[in-house]
Design a protein around this nucleic acid. Structure first.
Length: 414
RNA sequence: GCGGAUGUAGCUCAGUUGGCCAGAGCACCUGGUUGUGGCCCAGGGGGCCGAGAGUUCAAGUCUCUCCAUUCGCCCCA
C-alpha cells in the first residue's frame, strides 16, 4: 500500500496550481499599488502568540490548532491565521519606530484541524493584508477598497461586500448586555446552539443559520445603535468614502466576527457559490492588538482572504499555449534539434522537444497533444540544409525554414 | 468533535436476488507500408473491485472495523 496523503492536505496540479500562481501575481501587482509591501513569515510560532491574539475562548485556539512541543517542551503551533504572526514580526522589527504607517501583506499556508469540506482544507492558503499605525477611517476605506480591487482584478464577480461596526470595547460591552437581556426573554425560541452561545459568546447568536428568521432575531438590538458617537462617526466616514468611490456594500447588522481582537469596522466578502461556506475574505480593525501582544499602542486594520475559496470562483483558466514542439526524426538529428529548441527558448519562446525513439506518427501526436502552435521537424534532409520543416498545427500548412531564421519566423506568426 | 453519502482501470461509471476467467466509454500506447498530429479503423497495456477481518461450498456483491473521499453541523478565509 502506498503512503497516503494527510487528510485535509492537498496536492495541487494544473490547472489549480496556475490559478494560485495567478492569484499571487495579481496580488503582487495590486497590493504595491496601494503602498503595501510583501512580508514572508514563519508558519510555526509559539502557541502563546495565537492564544493571546485570537482569544483563548475561540474555537480556533481551543480545538483547531496543530500544536506540539518543541525540543525543549515549549508549545508551538502551525499558524491558523497570519495576523498574529504579522503583529509579532512588526513588533520584533520595531517598524513603528521607523515609519508612521506600515502597509504589509503576505500569503501562504495556514493550518486548522477542522473537518474538511468544500472550500475548507486543513492546510489552506490566505492572502493577508495589514495596515498599522493609523486609526483614520481613510485607512479602513483604503484597505476595503484594496480588497475589492484585488478580487475584481481576478475577474470574480457576484460577491457581496458586507460591513458593520462593532464599536470600541465600551460600546461592545453595553451592547453585549443589551443583547443578552433581549435574548433571555426569548430563550425558549432559540436553537440549542444559540442557548449555549448566548452566555459564552452572545454576538455569535446573531449569525446563527437556523434562527435567522426568528422574530426575536429580526428585532434584536443593532450594533450600530450602541456605537458611541466617536465610533459612529468613524464608521460613517468609512462607508461614506466607499460610497463616494462607487464601492457597493450591504449594511449587515448581524455581521460579527469570530476572532476576539476585532473592533469598530468589520467587513466580509461573501459568496453563495462555495458550498456551506460564505466568507471569501474577512477583516476588520484591531486597535488594541499590538499593545496586547506587548508592543506599542498602535492601531491596525486588515483582512484575510481565502485562496482556495477564491479558486472555487475563478473558473477555468486558460493555460498558456506553447509555441513549438521539436520533432527529431533520426538519432543523427537529435543534437541539432536539441540546440534548435534551446535557441528558441533563449529567444523567448516556449516549447518541448520529443524524447521518443518511436516513429514520426507518435512524435506528431505528442506535438499535437502538447498544444504547440508549431511543430518543428528535423530530419536528415533538413539537417543537411541546416534547416527544419515548420508545420502550423492549426492550419496544417508546412514550410521549410533555415535554422537561424526559425525564432523570428515563429515569433512573427503570433 | 458530530451526522449523511460514497469508495470497481488514469477519468466517468456498469456489474442484476452472492455463482464460471471483472466490463464499457473516454484517456493512454502501437499499427493502418517509405518522414507528418487532430477524424476514422484495427489491435494492445493497464484493476489484490479502498484496507483488514468475518459469514458462505462460493463475495465486487452480505456483516463488522478501519482508512479515504464528499456533502452538511460546528467554526471560519
Amino acid at each position: 500500500m502506498s503512503i497516503a496523503r494527510i487528510n485535509g492536505f492537498a496536492d495541487m496540479f494544473e490547472p489549480e496550481s496556475t490559478a494560485f500562481t495567478f492569484m499571487e501575481s495579481q496580488c503582487r501587482k495590486i497590493f504595491p499599488a496601494y503602498g503595501f509591501k510583501e512580508v514572508r513569515l514563519p508558519v510555526l510560532e509559539y502557541t502563546d502568540l495565537f492564544a493571546r491574539s485570537i482569544g483563548t475562548e475561540t474555537d480556533v485556539v481551543q480545538k483547531e490548532m496543530y500544536t506540539f512541543p518543541d525540543s525543549k517542551g515549549k508549545p508551538t503551533s502551525l499558524r491558523p491565521e497570519a495576523t498574529a504572526g504579522m503583529m509579532r514580526a512588526y513588533i520584533a522589527a520595531s517598524l513603528h519606530a521607523r515609519e508612521q504607517v506600515s502597509r504589509l501583506y503576505t500569503f501562504g499556508p495556514m493550518f486548522r484541524h477542522e473537518r474538511p469540506q468544500k472550500g475548507r482544507m486543513r492546510q489552506f492558503h490566505q492572502i493577508d493584508c495589514e495596515l498599522l499605525g493609523s486609526s483614520s477611517p481613510v485607512a479602513d476605506a483604503d484597505v476595503v477598497s484594496l480588497l475589492v480591487h484585488f478580487v475584481s482584478s481576478l475577474g470574480i464577480g457576484g460577491l457581496t461586500l458586507r460591513m458593520n461596526s462593532l464599536g470600541c470595547a465600551s460600546c461592545r460591552q453595553t451592547y453585549r448586555q443589551a443583547l443578552i437581556s433581549h435574548f433571555e426573554k426569548h430563550e425558549a425560541e432559540l436553537c440549542e446552539d444559540c442557548r449555549r452561545r448566548l452566555h459564552a459568546n452572545p454576538l455569535r447568536v446573531l449569525d446563527c443559520k437556523k434562527d435567522r428568521e426568528l422574530p426575536c432575531m429580526l428585532d434584536a438590538p443593532r450594533l450600530l445603535d450602541y456605537n458611541c458617537p466617536d465610533c459612529l462617526e468613524h464608521y460613517e466616514t468609512v462607508t461614506g468614502l466607499l460610497k463616494d468611490a462607487g464601492i457597493a456594500y450591504v449594511q449587515d447588522d448581524r455581521l460579527v466576527r469570530g476572532l476576539d481582537y476585532y473592533c469598530r469596522t468589520t467587513f466580509e466578502l461573501q459568496s453563495d457559490a462555495i458550498g456551506a461556506q460564505t466568507a471569501v475574505a474577512g477583516g476588520g480593525r484591531y486597535d488594541g492588538l499590538v499593545k496586547q501582544l506587548g508592543g506599542p499602542d498602535i492601531p491596525g486594520i486588515g483582512f484575510a482572504c481565502g485562496m482556495e475559496r477564491l479558486a472555487l470562483l475563478l473558473g477555468e483558466r486558460q493555460l498558456q499555449r506553447p509555441d513549438f514542439f521539436v520533432v527529431s526524426l533520426d538519432p543523427s538529428c537529435t543534437a541539432f534539434a536539441f540546440k534548435l529548441a534551446q535557441s528558441l527558448r533563449h529567444a523567448g519562446l516556449s516549447g518541448e522537444t520529443g524524447y521518443g525513439s518511436s516513429g514520426m506518427k507518435s512524435a506528431m501526436r505528442q506535438a499535437g497533444k502538447s498544444g504547440a502552435r508549431f511543430a518543428v521537424i528535423v530530419g536528415t534532409d533538413e539537417l543537411s540544409r541546416g534547416a527544419c520543416a515548420v508545420k502550423n498545427m492549426d492550419q496544417g500548412t508546412q514550410e521549410e525554414v533555415p535554422a537561424d531564421a526559425l525564432a523570428t519566423y515563429i515569433a512573427n506568426k503570433d
